[in-house]
Amino acid sequence: MEILSILIPVSLFLGGVGLVAFFWAMRTRQFDDPAGDAARILTKDWDDRPKPP
């Protein structure tokens, strides 16, 4: 049963990471245009180098 003292914090931590990632995605408005984001991945525009900020 001692293993629980590791496993429970680990599972809570991982869940927390997911939650923080979700908050970050919300804050940076990544759910504003689902159709557009799905389509954007298909463009070749910035395949060679990242888009300058």
Binding site: I8, S11, L12, G15, G16, G18, L19, F22, M26, F31
Partner: peptide, 18 residues
């Protein structure tokens, strides 16, 4: 609403596990 939904989902999954 979406934010609250996300939090509820996180909590639901973890509590369900326990």
């Amino acid at each position: 609403l979406l934010m609250r939904l996300g939090v509820a989902f996180f909590a639901m999954m973890n509590i369900m596990l326990l």
